[in-house]
């Protein structure tokens, strides 16, 4: 008798990247338009997230309407700047280089006890300051480049990397950003290299986190959808990995929210008084 078997389903995280790219280019165009912007600003680190964001912005707005800026510090890896140049060239966007060493070191000199970790945060926040200033100078809206994995892990500098008002990649896991990057033609050397925040010499994301992104993303997707740990163990993930993922997510919820406000009234903002961020009314 003929036997017909269920076709094994594709990877849970696989997306149709042509559809995603079309959706995100429209997102960038529309979210800028109602805010009164037709130009975007992207801080390009030489990594895959900002490269993908730059590619999307160039598609959405035309390369001539996108400003790319590299913000190296003297301790940054020279490779990062080299790759930032490669990305800008690949997508036909001019690259401006602004060295943040003086900004960061000017403050660091006042705090001789500063650790490399603290200085890493100062660098990320200095970049945010430059980005917002250039936004005014060029009338260009800064685009965020943070992906869903790092947002869920709280693996970013609060009020630094997460500061831009519009973020196209924030609902894509790192694994999915890699897929989208390949589809968009981000140079292979950038897609394939080990991700790094490059805030401290020799740093890599996966060493910091103690997890591989490809494994972490599958755990995250199942955890967020409410699958029990046993289910993930049956898929071949270790209890240690699962606990690490859950611990990172559950110790960083505050980083995904606005600061905590003491609630006293029935009109407390975002608690009782709720309006979507794009809410407007006729001007009379």
């Amino acid at each position: 008798m003929k036997v017909v078997r269920e076709v094994p389903r594709g990877e849970v995280l696989a997306l149709d990247y042509a559809l995603v790219a079309d959706y995100l280019t429209r997102f960038i165009r529309e979210e800028l338009a109602w805010r009164g912007f037709s130009r975007a600003l992207v801080a390009v680190s030489g990594g895959v997230d900002s490269a993908t964001t730059l590619a999307l912005a160039a598609r959405a707005l035309g390369a001539e309407n996108v400003h790319a800026v590299a913000l190296p510090h003297r301790e940054s890896s020279p490779e990062s700047l080299e790759h930032a140049g490669l990305v800008a060239e690949a997508f036909g966007v001019g690259l401006e280089v602004i060295d943040i060493t003086d900004m960061v070191e000017g403050y660091a000199r006042l705090r001789p006890e500063m650790t490399p970790y603290r200085k890493g945060n100062v660098k990320a926040r200095a970049r945010m300051v430059v980005l917002y200033d250039l936004s005014m100078a060029y009338h260009a809206l800064p685009l965020g480049t943070g992906n869903k994995t790092e947002r869920l892990f709280g693996y970013f500098t609060w009020h630094g990397d997460d500061a831009p008002p519009v973020n196209p990649l924030g609902d894509l896991y790192k694994t999915q950003v890699w897929g989208l990057a390949e589809y968009l033609g981000v140079p292979e050397v950038i897609v394939k290299k080990a991700p790094t925040a490059d805030l401290e010499p020799g740093q890599t994301d996966e060493a910091d986190l103690g997890l591989s992104y490809r494994r972490a993303d599958v755990i995250l997707e199942h955890y967020l959808k409410g699958y029990p740990d046993d289910y993930l163990v049956r898929l071949g993930y270790s209890p240690k990995e699962i606990q690490r993922v859950k611990a990172l997510v559950n110790s960083t919820h505050h980083k995904r929210h606005l600061p905590t406000v003491a609630v006293l009234s029935t009109t407390a903002i975002n608690e009782f008084y709720l309006r979507p961020l794009d809410f407007r009314m006729d001007e009379r």
Binding site: L274, R275, P276, D278, F279, M281
Partner: peptide, 12 residues
């Protein structure tokens, strides 16, 4: 009005 209004329904 557009779809997502939250409490703005009351105003619009």
């Amino acid at each position: 009005t557009g779809y997502f209004l939250q409490g703005g329904v009351r105003e619009l």
